[in-house]
Design a binder for these strands. Sequence first.
DNA 1: CAGCGTCTCAAACGTCTGTTTTAAACATAC
DNA 2: GTATGTTTAAAACAGACGTTTGAGACGCTG
Lengths: 233, 233
Amino acid sequence: MKTSSPSDAGMPAEPKYSETALRILEAAERLFVELGLEATSLRLITQQAGVNLAAVNYHFRSKDALFEAVFARRFEPWARECLRELERLEARSSAGTARFDAEAVVMCYVRPALALSKDPSRGGALFVRLFSRVLVENHRALRETLSRDWGHLVTRYTEALGRVLPGLSAEEIAWRLHLGFSVMFHAFAGNDILKLFGRSAVSARDPDLIVKHVVPFVLAGMGAAPRFGDGTP
Amino acid sequence: MKTSSPSDAGMPAEPKYSETALRILEAAERLFVELGLEATSLRLITQQAGVNLAAVNYHFRSKDALFEAVFARRFEPWARECLRELERLEARSSAGTARFDAEAVVMCYVRPALALSKDPSRGGALFVRLFSRVLVENHRALRETLSRDWGHLVTRYTEALGRVLPGLSAEEIAWRLHLGFSVMFHAFAGNDILKLFGRSAVSARDPDLIVKHVVPFVLAGMGAAPRFGDGTP
DNA sequence: CAGCGTCTCAAACGTCTGTTTTAAACATAC
DNA sequence: GTATGTTTAAAACAGACGTTTGAGACGCTG
Protein backbone atom coordinates (compact mmCIF):
# COMPACT_ATOMS: atom_id res chain seq x y z
CA MET A 1 0.00 0.00 0.00
CA LYS A 2 0.92 3.66 -0.22
CA THR A 3 -0.92 5.40 2.64
CA SER A 4 -0.03 6.18 6.30
CA SER A 5 2.84 8.50 7.00
CA PRO A 6 5.40 7.01 9.45
CA SER A 7 4.07 8.66 12.62
CA ASP A 8 0.30 8.27 12.80
CA ALA A 9 -0.48 10.68 15.61
CA GLY A 10 -2.68 8.56 17.84
CA MET A 11 -5.82 8.10 15.80
CA PRO A 12 -6.30 5.27 13.32
CA ALA A 13 -6.35 7.38 10.18
CA GLU A 14 -8.00 4.83 7.87
CA PRO A 15 -9.99 1.76 8.86
CA LYS A 16 -7.77 -0.27 6.52
CA TYR A 17 -10.14 -1.01 3.66
CA SER A 18 -9.47 -4.01 1.45
CA GLU A 19 -8.69 -3.52 -2.22
CA THR A 20 -12.26 -4.36 -3.18
CA ALA A 21 -13.77 -2.09 -0.55
CA LEU A 22 -11.57 0.76 -1.78
CA ARG A 23 -12.69 0.35 -5.37
CA ILE A 24 -16.27 0.46 -4.18
CA LEU A 25 -15.65 3.57 -2.10
CA GLU A 26 -14.08 5.39 -5.01
CA ALA A 27 -16.75 4.52 -7.55
CA ALA A 28 -19.47 5.33 -5.04
CA GLU A 29 -17.94 8.68 -4.20
CA ARG A 30 -17.84 9.73 -7.83
CA LEU A 31 -21.38 8.57 -8.51
CA PHE A 32 -22.93 9.96 -5.32
CA VAL A 33 -21.50 13.35 -6.22
CA GLU A 34 -22.60 13.17 -9.83
CA LEU A 35 -26.06 11.65 -9.41
CA GLY A 36 -26.97 11.89 -5.74
CA LEU A 37 -27.62 9.16 -3.22
CA GLU A 38 -31.04 8.05 -4.40
CA ALA A 39 -30.28 8.12 -8.10
CA THR A 40 -27.19 5.96 -7.73
CA SER A 41 -27.84 2.23 -7.70
CA LEU A 42 -25.57 -0.34 -6.14
CA ARG A 43 -25.47 -2.10 -9.48
CA LEU A 44 -24.02 0.94 -11.18
CA ILE A 45 -21.45 1.36 -8.42
CA THR A 46 -20.27 -2.24 -8.47
CA GLN A 47 -20.23 -2.27 -12.25
CA GLN A 48 -17.99 0.80 -12.42
CA ALA A 49 -15.84 -0.52 -9.61
CA GLY A 50 -15.49 -3.84 -11.39
CA VAL A 51 -16.62 -5.86 -8.40
CA ASN A 52 -19.54 -8.07 -7.57
CA LEU A 53 -22.85 -6.66 -6.43
CA ALA A 54 -22.90 -8.57 -3.16
CA ALA A 55 -19.54 -7.12 -2.18
CA VAL A 56 -21.20 -3.90 -1.12
CA ASN A 57 -23.42 -5.56 1.46
CA TYR A 58 -20.51 -7.68 2.60
CA HIS A 59 -17.95 -4.92 3.14
CA PHE A 60 -20.39 -2.22 4.15
CA ARG A 61 -23.64 -3.22 5.74
CA SER A 62 -26.08 -1.42 3.51
CA LYS A 63 -26.29 1.34 0.94
CA ASP A 64 -26.80 3.95 3.65
CA ALA A 65 -23.82 2.67 5.59
CA LEU A 66 -21.77 2.84 2.41
CA PHE A 67 -22.74 6.46 1.98
CA GLU A 68 -21.67 7.26 5.50
CA ALA A 69 -18.37 5.48 4.95
CA VAL A 70 -17.79 7.44 1.74
CA PHE A 71 -18.48 10.66 3.59
CA ALA A 72 -16.49 9.86 6.70
CA ARG A 73 -13.41 8.79 4.76
CA ARG A 74 -12.96 12.29 3.40
CA PHE A 75 -14.61 14.35 6.10
CA GLU A 76 -12.70 13.18 9.13
CA PRO A 77 -9.20 13.95 7.90
CA TRP A 78 -10.44 17.31 6.72
CA ALA A 79 -12.16 18.15 9.99
CA ARG A 80 -9.06 17.11 11.96
CA GLU A 81 -6.97 19.39 9.78
CA CYS A 82 -9.33 22.31 10.40
CA LEU A 83 -9.07 21.75 14.12
CA ARG A 84 -5.29 21.44 14.01
CA GLU A 85 -4.98 24.65 11.98
CA LEU A 86 -7.02 26.52 14.54
CA GLU A 87 -4.99 25.16 17.43
CA ARG A 88 -1.76 26.03 15.67
CA LEU A 89 -3.01 29.55 15.07
CA GLU A 90 -3.93 29.94 18.73
CA ALA A 91 -0.55 28.66 19.80
CA ARG A 92 1.37 30.92 17.43
CA SER A 93 -0.78 33.86 18.42
CA SER A 94 -0.04 33.30 22.11
CA ALA A 95 3.64 33.08 21.26
CA GLY A 96 3.33 36.34 19.39
CA THR A 97 4.47 34.86 16.08
CA ALA A 98 1.16 35.26 14.27
CA ARG A 99 -1.69 37.75 14.13
CA PHE A 100 -5.06 36.50 15.28
CA ASP A 101 -7.42 38.24 12.88
CA ALA A 102 -10.41 37.36 10.69
CA GLU A 103 -8.26 36.41 7.74
CA ALA A 104 -6.20 34.04 9.86
CA VAL A 105 -9.33 32.33 11.18
CA VAL A 106 -10.93 32.05 7.76
CA MET A 107 -7.73 30.62 6.30
CA CYS A 108 -7.83 27.93 8.98
CA TYR A 109 -10.71 26.28 7.17
CA VAL A 110 -9.94 27.48 3.68
CA ARG A 111 -6.43 26.01 3.68
CA PRO A 112 -7.54 22.41 4.36
CA ALA A 113 -10.28 22.69 1.75
CA LEU A 114 -7.75 24.02 -0.73
CA ALA A 115 -5.26 21.27 0.03
CA LEU A 116 -7.97 18.66 -0.34
CA SER A 117 -9.18 20.10 -3.63
CA LYS A 118 -5.68 19.96 -5.07
CA ASP A 119 -4.96 16.41 -3.99
CA PRO A 120 -6.31 13.86 -6.49
CA SER A 121 -5.38 10.99 -4.18
CA ARG A 122 -8.00 12.28 -1.75
CA GLY A 123 -10.64 12.67 -4.41
CA GLY A 124 -9.84 16.28 -5.24
CA ALA A 125 -12.86 18.55 -5.30
CA LEU A 126 -15.24 15.60 -5.16
CA PHE A 127 -15.66 15.75 -1.42
CA VAL A 128 -16.51 19.42 -1.34
CA ARG A 129 -19.20 18.76 -3.89
CA LEU A 130 -20.47 15.86 -1.79
CA PHE A 131 -20.50 18.05 1.29
CA SER A 132 -22.47 20.76 -0.48
CA ARG A 133 -25.04 18.13 -1.37
CA VAL A 134 -25.23 16.96 2.23
CA LEU A 135 -25.78 20.55 3.23
CA VAL A 136 -28.86 20.88 1.05
CA GLU A 137 -30.39 17.43 1.16
CA ASN A 138 -30.38 16.36 4.77
CA HIS A 139 -29.44 12.87 5.65
CA ARG A 140 -30.67 12.08 9.10
CA ALA A 141 -27.95 9.67 10.18
CA LEU A 142 -25.20 11.96 8.98
CA ARG A 143 -26.58 14.93 10.88
CA GLU A 144 -26.60 12.92 14.07
CA THR A 145 -23.02 11.79 13.59
CA LEU A 146 -21.82 15.27 12.76
CA SER A 147 -23.46 16.99 15.70
CA ARG A 148 -22.34 14.28 18.10
CA ASP A 149 -18.74 13.88 16.99
CA TRP A 150 -17.91 17.22 15.42
CA GLY A 151 -20.16 19.81 17.00
CA HIS A 152 -17.22 21.06 19.04
CA LEU A 153 -15.42 21.97 15.81
CA VAL A 154 -18.11 24.52 14.98
CA THR A 155 -18.12 25.74 18.56
CA ARG A 156 -14.38 26.35 18.41
CA TYR A 157 -14.66 28.33 15.19
CA THR A 158 -17.52 30.35 16.59
CA GLU A 159 -15.41 31.30 19.60
CA ALA A 160 -12.43 32.16 17.42
CA LEU A 161 -14.51 34.36 15.16
CA GLY A 162 -16.00 36.04 18.19
CA ARG A 163 -12.50 37.00 19.31
CA VAL A 164 -11.56 38.63 16.02
CA LEU A 165 -14.88 40.43 15.56
CA PRO A 166 -15.35 41.85 19.04
CA GLY A 167 -18.03 44.37 18.14
CA LEU A 168 -20.62 41.76 17.17
CA SER A 169 -23.26 39.91 19.18
CA ALA A 170 -23.15 36.12 19.49
CA GLU A 171 -26.06 35.86 17.09
CA GLU A 172 -24.30 38.02 14.56
CA ILE A 173 -21.14 35.93 14.86
CA ALA A 174 -23.11 32.78 14.18
CA TRP A 175 -24.59 34.38 11.08
CA ARG A 176 -21.22 35.47 9.76
CA LEU A 177 -19.79 32.01 10.24
CA HIS A 178 -22.81 30.40 8.62
CA LEU A 179 -22.59 32.69 5.59
CA GLY A 180 -18.83 32.43 5.38
CA PHE A 181 -18.85 28.64 5.44
CA SER A 182 -21.73 28.51 3.02
CA VAL A 183 -20.23 30.71 0.35
CA MET A 184 -16.90 28.95 0.50
CA PHE A 185 -18.36 25.48 0.19
CA HIS A 186 -20.60 26.27 -2.69
CA ALA A 187 -17.85 28.18 -4.45
CA PHE A 188 -15.44 25.27 -4.11
CA ALA A 189 -18.17 22.87 -5.17
CA GLY A 190 -18.82 24.95 -8.28
CA ASN A 191 -22.52 25.42 -7.56
CA ASP A 192 -22.76 28.41 -9.81
CA ILE A 193 -26.00 30.17 -10.64
CA LEU A 194 -24.45 31.88 -13.63
CA LYS A 195 -23.48 28.47 -14.98
CA LEU A 196 -27.03 27.23 -14.38
CA PHE A 197 -28.23 30.02 -16.64
CA GLY A 198 -25.63 29.27 -19.27
CA ARG A 199 -23.78 32.52 -18.52
CA SER A 200 -20.71 31.00 -17.02
CA ALA A 201 -17.70 33.35 -17.39
CA VAL A 202 -16.46 31.90 -14.11
CA SER A 203 -15.49 28.51 -15.50
CA ALA A 204 -12.69 28.34 -12.91
CA ARG A 205 -12.05 24.82 -11.80
CA ASP A 206 -8.69 25.94 -10.46
CA PRO A 207 -8.91 25.88 -6.65
CA ASP A 208 -6.30 28.62 -6.25
CA LEU A 209 -8.37 30.91 -8.43
CA ILE A 210 -11.44 30.14 -6.35
CA VAL A 211 -9.65 31.07 -3.16
CA LYS A 212 -8.41 34.26 -4.74
CA HIS A 213 -11.96 35.40 -5.39
CA VAL A 214 -13.78 33.91 -2.42
CA VAL A 215 -11.52 34.94 0.43
CA PRO A 216 -11.74 38.71 -0.12
CA PHE A 217 -15.50 38.38 -0.50
CA VAL A 218 -15.88 36.42 2.73
CA LEU A 219 -13.49 38.61 4.71
CA ALA A 220 -15.26 41.77 3.66
CA GLY A 221 -18.63 40.20 4.45
CA MET A 222 -17.55 39.04 7.88
CA GLY A 223 -16.14 42.42 8.78
CA ALA A 224 -19.18 44.36 7.61
CA ALA A 225 -20.96 46.73 9.96
CA PRO A 226 -24.20 45.12 11.10
CA ARG A 227 -27.49 46.62 9.96
CA PHE A 228 -29.67 48.14 12.63
CA GLY A 229 -33.39 47.74 13.26
CA ASP A 230 -34.75 48.22 9.76
CA GLY A 231 -33.05 50.20 7.04
CA THR A 232 -32.55 53.52 8.85
CA PRO A 233 -28.88 53.91 9.76
CA MET B 1 -60.50 31.31 -7.92
CA LYS B 2 -58.47 33.98 -6.22
CA THR B 3 -55.44 34.63 -8.46
CA SER B 4 -54.73 37.09 -11.32
CA SER B 5 -54.74 40.79 -10.67
CA PRO B 6 -57.02 42.76 -13.05
CA SER B 7 -54.39 43.82 -15.57
CA ASP B 8 -52.28 40.81 -16.54
CA ALA B 9 -49.50 42.54 -18.43
CA GLY B 10 -49.38 40.53 -21.64
CA MET B 11 -48.13 37.12 -20.54
CA PRO B 12 -50.42 34.29 -19.44
CA ALA B 13 -49.44 34.30 -15.77
CA GLU B 14 -50.70 30.79 -14.89
CA PRO B 15 -51.55 27.98 -17.32
CA LYS B 16 -54.89 27.57 -15.53
CA TYR B 17 -54.37 24.28 -13.71
CA SER B 18 -57.37 22.19 -12.78
CA GLU B 19 -58.25 21.57 -9.15
CA THR B 20 -56.64 18.14 -9.23
CA ALA B 21 -53.52 19.37 -11.00
CA LEU B 22 -53.13 22.07 -8.38
CA ARG B 23 -53.37 19.60 -5.51
CA ILE B 24 -50.69 17.52 -7.21
CA LEU B 25 -48.45 20.55 -7.74
CA GLU B 26 -48.70 21.56 -4.13
CA ALA B 27 -48.04 18.13 -2.67
CA ALA B 28 -45.21 17.58 -5.13
CA GLU B 29 -43.61 20.89 -4.28
CA ARG B 30 -43.57 20.13 -0.60
CA LEU B 31 -42.21 16.62 -1.10
CA PHE B 32 -39.61 17.52 -3.70
CA VAL B 33 -38.23 20.10 -1.31
CA GLU B 34 -38.29 17.77 1.67
CA LEU B 35 -37.07 14.56 0.05
CA GLY B 36 -35.63 15.47 -3.33
CA LEU B 37 -36.74 14.43 -6.79
CA GLU B 38 -35.52 10.85 -6.79
CA ALA B 39 -36.63 10.01 -3.29
CA THR B 40 -40.17 11.23 -3.87
CA SER B 41 -42.47 8.66 -5.46
CA LEU B 42 -45.54 9.50 -7.47
CA ARG B 43 -47.48 7.24 -5.15
CA LEU B 44 -46.54 9.35 -2.16
CA ILE B 45 -47.42 12.55 -3.99
CA THR B 46 -50.83 11.37 -5.14
CA GLN B 47 -51.57 9.90 -1.73
CA GLN B 48 -50.83 13.19 0.04
CA ALA B 49 -52.72 15.13 -2.63
CA GLY B 50 -55.70 12.82 -2.26
CA VAL B 51 -55.87 12.04 -5.97
CA ASN B 52 -55.44 8.99 -8.12
CA LEU B 53 -52.01 7.80 -9.17
CA ALA B 54 -52.74 8.03 -12.89
CA ALA B 55 -53.75 11.68 -12.54
CA VAL B 56 -50.09 12.70 -12.56
CA ASN B 57 -49.39 11.16 -15.95
CA TYR B 58 -52.64 12.55 -17.25
CA HIS B 59 -52.21 16.18 -16.19
CA PHE B 60 -48.45 16.29 -16.50
CA ARG B 61 -46.77 13.97 -18.94
CA SER B 62 -44.27 12.33 -16.67
CA LYS B 63 -42.56 12.68 -13.33
CA ASP B 64 -39.83 14.82 -14.84
CA ALA B 65 -42.36 17.06 -16.55
CA LEU B 66 -44.17 17.40 -13.23
CA PHE B 67 -40.95 18.55 -11.61
CA GLU B 68 -40.43 21.15 -14.29
CA ALA B 69 -43.99 22.36 -13.86
CA VAL B 70 -43.52 22.63 -10.11
CA PHE B 71 -40.38 24.64 -10.65
CA ALA B 72 -41.71 26.86 -13.41
CA ARG B 73 -44.86 27.77 -11.51
CA ARG B 74 -42.81 29.54 -8.84
CA PHE B 75 -39.76 30.51 -10.78
CA GLU B 76 -41.30 32.46 -13.63
CA PRO B 77 -43.25 34.97 -11.58
CA TRP B 78 -40.19 35.47 -9.44
CA ALA B 79 -37.85 35.95 -12.39
CA ARG B 80 -40.27 38.41 -13.99
CA GLU B 81 -40.35 40.36 -10.77
CA CYS B 82 -36.56 40.48 -10.64
CA LEU B 83 -36.46 41.81 -14.17
CA ARG B 84 -39.15 44.38 -13.48
CA GLU B 85 -37.36 45.59 -10.36
CA LEU B 86 -34.18 46.10 -12.33
CA GLU B 87 -35.98 47.97 -15.10
CA ARG B 88 -37.74 50.15 -12.56
CA LEU B 89 -34.44 50.95 -10.92
CA GLU B 90 -32.88 51.89 -14.24
CA ALA B 91 -35.83 54.10 -15.08
CA ARG B 92 -35.85 55.84 -11.71
CA SER B 93 -32.11 56.24 -11.88
CA SER B 94 -32.32 57.90 -15.30
CA ALA B 95 -35.00 60.19 -13.96
CA GLY B 96 -32.74 61.07 -11.07
CA THR B 97 -35.18 59.82 -8.43
CA ALA B 98 -33.08 56.90 -7.24
CA ARG B 99 -29.43 56.10 -6.67
CA PHE B 100 -27.95 53.38 -8.82
CA ASP B 101 -25.55 51.65 -6.42
CA ALA B 102 -24.67 48.13 -5.32
CA GLU B 103 -27.32 48.06 -2.61
CA ALA B 104 -30.01 49.08 -5.07
CA VAL B 105 -29.00 46.32 -7.49
CA VAL B 106 -28.80 43.67 -4.79
CA MET B 107 -32.18 44.68 -3.44
CA CYS B 108 -33.62 44.15 -6.93
CA TYR B 109 -33.32 40.42 -6.46
CA VAL B 110 -33.56 40.30 -2.69
CA ARG B 111 -36.91 42.05 -2.61
CA PRO B 112 -38.73 39.53 -4.81
CA ALA B 113 -37.21 36.65 -2.85
CA LEU B 114 -38.34 38.30 0.36
CA ALA B 115 -41.84 38.90 -0.92
CA LEU B 116 -42.07 35.31 -2.10
CA SER B 117 -40.83 33.94 1.22
CA LYS B 118 -43.46 35.89 3.12
CA ASP B 119 -46.37 34.86 0.89
CA PRO B 120 -47.81 31.48 1.93
CA SER B 121 -50.12 31.45 -1.11
CA ARG B 122 -47.01 31.19 -3.27
CA GLY B 123 -45.51 28.42 -1.18
CA GLY B 124 -43.50 30.70 1.07
CA ALA B 125 -39.88 29.72 1.46
CA LEU B 126 -40.48 26.39 -0.24
CA PHE B 127 -39.42 27.61 -3.65
CA VAL B 128 -36.14 29.04 -2.46
CA ARG B 129 -35.34 25.70 -0.91
CA LEU B 130 -36.27 23.98 -4.15
CA PHE B 131 -34.08 26.36 -6.08
CA SER B 132 -31.13 25.72 -3.81
CA ARG B 133 -31.55 22.02 -4.50
CA VAL B 134 -31.62 22.63 -8.24
CA LEU B 135 -28.44 24.60 -7.85
CA VAL B 136 -26.61 21.65 -6.32
CA GLU B 137 -28.12 18.66 -8.03
CA ASN B 138 -28.24 19.47 -11.71
CA HIS B 139 -31.27 18.59 -13.69
CA ARG B 140 -30.41 18.59 -17.35
CA ALA B 141 -33.75 19.65 -18.76
CA LEU B 142 -34.10 22.48 -16.28
CA ARG B 143 -30.67 23.84 -17.10
CA GLU B 144 -31.55 23.98 -20.77
CA THR B 145 -34.81 25.79 -20.11
CA LEU B 146 -33.17 28.28 -17.79
CA SER B 147 -30.32 29.16 -20.09
CA ARG B 148 -32.60 29.41 -23.10
CA ASP B 149 -35.45 31.42 -21.58
CA TRP B 150 -33.80 33.27 -18.72
CA GLY B 151 -30.15 33.65 -19.56
CA HIS B 152 -30.75 37.30 -20.39
CA LEU B 153 -31.84 37.89 -16.79
CA VAL B 154 -28.37 36.99 -15.56
CA THR B 155 -26.80 39.05 -18.32
CA ARG B 156 -28.80 42.08 -17.25
CA TYR B 157 -27.76 41.72 -13.64
CA THR B 158 -24.14 41.26 -14.65
CA GLU B 159 -24.26 44.51 -16.61
CA ALA B 160 -25.98 46.34 -13.79
CA LEU B 161 -23.42 45.13 -11.27
CA GLY B 162 -20.64 46.14 -13.63
CA ARG B 163 -22.00 49.68 -13.64
CA VAL B 164 -22.01 50.04 -9.86
CA LEU B 165 -18.61 48.38 -9.36
CA PRO B 166 -16.64 50.15 -12.06
CA GLY B 167 -13.18 49.23 -10.75
CA LEU B 168 -13.59 45.50 -11.35
CA SER B 169 -12.89 43.30 -14.36
CA ALA B 170 -15.69 41.41 -16.08
CA GLU B 171 -14.45 38.18 -14.56
CA GLU B 172 -14.45 39.70 -11.12
CA ILE B 173 -17.98 41.01 -11.61
CA ALA B 174 -19.15 37.55 -12.56
CA TRP B 175 -17.58 36.15 -9.41
CA ARG B 176 -19.22 38.74 -7.18
CA LEU B 177 -22.60 38.05 -8.69
CA HIS B 178 -22.14 34.30 -8.39
CA LEU B 179 -21.14 34.57 -4.73
CA GLY B 180 -23.81 37.13 -3.97
CA PHE B 181 -26.58 35.03 -5.47
CA SER B 182 -25.25 31.91 -3.87
CA VAL B 183 -25.09 33.21 -0.33
CA MET B 184 -28.53 34.75 -0.55
CA PHE B 185 -30.20 31.62 -1.88
CA HIS B 186 -28.68 29.29 0.63
CA ALA B 187 -29.37 31.69 3.46
CA PHE B 188 -33.03 31.99 2.48
CA ALA B 189 -33.21 28.25 2.02
CA GLY B 190 -31.82 27.72 5.51
CA ASN B 191 -28.96 25.51 4.36
CA ASP B 192 -27.03 26.12 7.52
CA ILE B 193 -23.77 24.38 8.34
CA LEU B 194 -24.07 25.33 11.99
CA LYS B 195 -27.45 23.62 12.07
CA LEU B 196 -25.96 20.55 10.40
CA PHE B 197 -23.53 20.32 13.30
CA GLY B 198 -26.25 20.83 15.87
CA ARG B 199 -24.94 24.29 16.79
CA SER B 200 -27.77 26.31 15.42
CA ALA B 201 -28.02 29.68 17.21
CA VAL B 202 -29.31 31.08 13.90
CA SER B 203 -32.69 29.36 14.05
CA ALA B 204 -34.16 32.34 12.16
CA ARG B 205 -36.99 31.28 9.91
CA ASP B 206 -38.09 34.90 9.72
CA PRO B 207 -37.30 36.18 6.21
CA ASP B 208 -36.88 39.77 7.39
CA LEU B 209 -34.25 38.67 9.84
CA ILE B 210 -32.44 36.79 7.12
CA VAL B 211 -32.34 39.87 4.93
CA LYS B 212 -31.08 41.93 7.81
CA HIS B 213 -28.05 39.67 8.18
CA VAL B 214 -27.43 38.65 4.59
CA VAL B 215 -27.61 42.00 2.84
CA PRO B 216 -24.79 43.71 4.74
CA PHE B 217 -22.66 40.62 4.27
CA VAL B 218 -23.27 40.49 0.52
CA LEU B 219 -22.83 44.21 0.00
CA ALA B 220 -19.54 44.26 1.84
CA GLY B 221 -18.37 41.21 -0.08
CA MET B 222 -19.29 42.68 -3.44
CA GLY B 223 -17.56 45.95 -2.69
CA ALA B 224 -14.36 44.31 -1.43
CA ALA B 225 -11.04 45.21 -2.97
CA PRO B 226 -9.91 42.36 -5.22
CA ARG B 227 -6.88 40.32 -4.21
CA PHE B 228 -3.83 40.56 -6.42
CA GLY B 229 -1.59 37.81 -7.79
CA ASP B 230 -0.94 35.80 -4.64
CA GLY B 231 -1.02 37.18 -1.12
CA THR B 232 1.37 40.10 -1.44
CA PRO B 233 -0.58 43.39 -1.56
C1' DC C 1 -81.74 12.28 -24.60
C1' DA C 2 -77.85 11.52 -27.22
C1' DG C 3 -73.15 12.76 -28.08
C1' DC C 4 -68.66 14.08 -26.67
C1' DG C 5 -64.72 15.74 -24.51
C1' DT C 6 -62.69 15.85 -19.85
C1' DC C 7 -61.37 13.54 -16.14
C1' DT C 8 -61.10 9.63 -12.53
C1' DC C 9 -60.39 5.13 -11.16
C1' DA C 10 -58.50 0.41 -10.20
C1' DA C 11 -55.56 -2.78 -12.02
C1' DA C 12 -51.82 -4.33 -14.36
C1' DC C 13 -47.32 -3.71 -17.03
C1' DG C 14 -42.31 -4.53 -17.19
C1' DT C 15 -38.30 -2.96 -15.02
C1' DC C 16 -35.27 -1.86 -11.48
C1' DT C 17 -34.32 -1.52 -6.58
C1' DG C 18 -31.64 -3.07 -2.04
C1' DT C 19 -30.81 -7.17 0.06
C1' DT C 20 -30.18 -12.30 0.86
C1' DT C 21 -28.78 -16.76 -0.19
C1' DT C 22 -26.02 -20.46 -1.90
C1' DA C 23 -21.88 -22.26 -3.39
C1' DA C 24 -17.25 -21.84 -4.76
C1' DA C 25 -12.48 -19.84 -4.66
C1' DC C 26 -8.89 -18.09 -1.98
C1' DA C 27 -5.27 -17.38 1.47
C1' DT C 28 -3.18 -18.52 5.70
C1' DA C 29 -2.09 -21.56 9.78
C1' DC C 30 -1.74 -26.06 11.78
C1' DG D 1 -2.54 -31.50 3.21
C1' DT D 2 -6.19 -30.46 5.46
C1' DA D 3 -8.79 -27.26 8.10
C1' DT D 4 -10.41 -22.41 8.85
C1' DG D 5 -11.87 -17.99 8.17
C1' DT D 6 -12.24 -14.54 4.56
C1' DT D 7 -13.61 -12.84 0.16
C1' DT D 8 -15.97 -13.41 -4.36
C1' DA D 9 -19.45 -15.12 -7.54
C1' DA D 10 -24.11 -15.82 -9.66
C1' DA D 11 -28.72 -16.20 -8.94
C1' DA D 12 -32.86 -15.30 -6.78
C1' DC D 13 -35.90 -12.55 -3.49
C1' DA D 14 -39.82 -9.53 -2.50
C1' DG D 15 -41.10 -5.08 -3.05
C1' DA D 16 -41.37 -0.42 -5.13
C1' DC D 17 -40.93 2.21 -9.02
C1' DG D 18 -42.84 5.10 -13.34
C1' DT D 19 -45.98 4.38 -16.72
C1' DT D 20 -50.00 2.44 -19.44
C1' DT D 21 -54.40 0.59 -20.07
C1' DG D 22 -59.37 0.29 -20.61
C1' DA D 23 -63.56 1.01 -18.60
C1' DG D 24 -66.51 4.09 -16.50
C1' DA D 25 -68.25 8.67 -14.36
C1' DC D 26 -69.09 13.45 -14.94
C1' DG D 27 -70.64 17.87 -16.99
C1' DC D 28 -71.39 19.97 -20.94
C1' DT D 29 -73.67 21.46 -25.58
C1' DG D 30 -76.76 20.18 -29.27
